[in-house]
Design a binder for these strands. Sequence first.
RNA 1: GCUCGGUUGGUGUAGUCCGGCCAAUCAUUUUGCCCUUUCGAGGCGAAGACCAGGGUUCAAAUCCCUGACCGAGCACCA
Length: 478
Amino acid sequence: MLPDLPNAEEGEVRMRVAPNPNGPWHIGHARMAAVVGTYKELYDGTFICRFDDTDPETKRPDLDAYDQILDAIEYLGFEPDEVLRASDRVETYYDHARDLIDAGGAYTCSCPAEEFSELKNDGEPCPHRDKSPETVHEEFTGMVDGEYDSGEMVLRVKTDISHKNPALRDFVGFRMIDTPHPRPEASDYRCWPMLDFQSGIDDHLTGVTHIIRGIDLQDSAKKQRFVYDYFDWEYPEVIHWGHVQVDAYDVPMSTSTIAELIEDGELDGWDDPRAPTLASLRRRGIRGEALVEAMTGLGMSTSNVDLAMSTVYANNLQLIDDETDRAFFVRNGDDAVELSVSGGPTTASVPVHPDHEDRGTRELPATGGVFVESADLPAVGDRVWLKGYGCVRHTEDGLVYTDDSLDVTREEGVDIVHWVPADEAVPLRMRTPDGDVSGYAEPGVADYDPDDLLQFERVGFVRIDATGEEYVAYYTHS
RNA sequence: GCUCGGUUGGUGUAGUCCGGCCAAUCAUUUUGCCCUUUCGAGGCGAAGACCAGGGUUCAAAUCCCUGACCGAGCACCA
């Protein structure tokens, strides 16, 4: 399904996911883990999870997100062989910065950002470029010791000030950040590496052989090659891919936007069924495997791609259909119609799973009246087939058993519908990506536990979420 | 503006390096029929694509040129 990796050898492939832990993962984040995890299996390789948490301010890490992301990877069916936090490795980055200074590959610069930008765009070096290594060391030590405030001093990597791509000219390697890092272990650092520096160093030090990253980082490799050249390191294979969009959601796939909607109370949390997050898919009972299959099917193109949730749902259906028990659920709690049934058997018998007789049957009493969905109720005088019970006619006095044979459903167009015994119905709230639906489930649903999957016949699959005081199910898909 | 990258059915993808076996693969989607006490699953069909225009060639999705369109980067974000 996935293309071969260039220059990859069995057992030698090392890849990493490098999330910024500034929130739980949305569906788009799953792509990297899905692909890295799948390549790990393909090549018997190594899966590294490295938290690139080097910006305590603009992309401030969320202390809960580290574990939430690891949970998300586990949900997808993978386990990282190594877990690293960049904020644990700051001294290592300092060491390499000093080596780079020794090699003449970096200089401290106190130009205001805008001023440097103008010089850079004109291909002009700034006055700090030719400082002696001693001065640079001294000033860099000052940065490490926190002697400068944010914006006062940076360490630039010396590249080519007239490089034809302005983006690559003497980029910033380290800068000052006044805000302490949220992790206590890292809260004393004020001098932080930029992604391009930190990531480049770490990829080499952790033996990463193949890098996958977004097309937005396509200049990163070019920047990092300058550093690699100074150190005489060999750059890993790198693949860039486009952005993923997911259809079927009103909420945009953006960590910060979802966080805001939760903050404002528009979403109940990261696992709200309306949120395009992994926590949400998980709570809806969708297998991580179904998502991994869909993600790896997207390939590695540099074009932007749309992931159709229908593909995920179709994959999931294959995974769960056979093992999932059936049950009845009548939607529209207030709108459902309660009717008496007369003249027929006292109970109905319906298979737990149509393809597996050995799993037994569900016995549903019909004597205490039934709920049917208003849309399923035929006009007075017409018939409908209550699944597992038999044919009934809608009369002024409720539903009256007709003793017709099943042939009427085929030959006379009588619909077969689901229904629920009224006096033993279990009120249940079904949460869906389009909002909540209340209704009544058949009594046997009370015997299932949270996390169990059911198919509500003619409605769709659900995952039982809560039982007891209130029954809640999360809608999986049709 | 400068620097990169891309464009195969509604969606995703295979094929493009090394032109012919591609009247284009697989999945999803939509849809017809069969089966079925679910609008599910299953079975058998159907629909639907090589961005455009030139060129090279016996032969082009594939090579070349031009153009259009889409996207990314040009941060003391990741």
